[in-house]
């Protein structure tokens, strides 16, 4: 389970670097244990789900942050905040694609949802999984003066699946978009 979370974190960082065009990023684990508190104004959420597990990846940001990352990646000012938001959605999507690839490569069949934009406030409506085989973790990807709050939630529907999964820290690749699955 821990490895799965690490896998998600690693993917989020890896894809962050490639998507946001940052090489120098760091990760920080906040002390706050109230995991599903309202963290920021906006949240993009994406679900990776199969018969054996359910995985949710969320990023929390403000329009300012989204604009900043967009500008950094695209080297241009977004025409509207929606462009930046789409950019953030795309980020979650590539992270989810990498996660799906991870599972598919190990014969765990999963699908990914559309990345959905919602308000940070909606966090209060999300209930944490009540089963034991679940894990929730927040982390912050820091890049220059801005940072991105991420949340990973893994719920194992088939606990045996964990033993089948093997994860090692991936080597840095230049092809940031490898394994990306385009969403519909």
């Amino acid at each position: 389970m821990e490895k799965l979370i690490t896998m998600i974190k690693d993917n989020s960082i890896d894809r962050f670097k490639s998507h946001m065009k940052y090489n120098d990023v760091s990760i920080e684990i906040p002390n706050d244990k109230n995991l599903n508190k309202v963290r920021s104004f906006r949240t993009v959420i994406i679900l990776v789900s199969g018969d054996d597990l359910k995985l949710i990846f969320k990023v929390h940001f403000t329009s300012e942050i989204a604009n900043y990352f967009y500008q950094n990646a695209m080297q241009k000012t977004p025409a509207a905040v929606e462009k930046s938001i789409d950019f953030m959605k795309e980020y979650t999507n590539v992270v989810a694609g990498r996660i799906k690839k991870f599972f598919t490569d190990q014969n765990v069949n999963v699908g990914i949802s559309l990345p959905i934009l919602t308000r940070g406030f909606d966090e209060i409506f999300f209930e944490l999984p009540k089963i034991n085989d679940a894990i929730v973790e927040n982390w912050i990807i820091k890049a220059e003066k801005y940072h991105l709050c991420c949340t990973g939630i893994i719920e194992l529907l088939n606990p045996n699946v964990v033993s089948r999964l093997k994860y090692s820290v991936p080597e840095q690749t230049d092809n940031g978009d490898e394994g990306e699955v385009n969403f519909l």
Partner: peptide
């Protein structure tokens, strides 16, 4: 402030 900034 901007309404995105006054959260919390």
């Amino acid at each position: 402030k901007d309404c995105e900034q006054i959260l919390r």
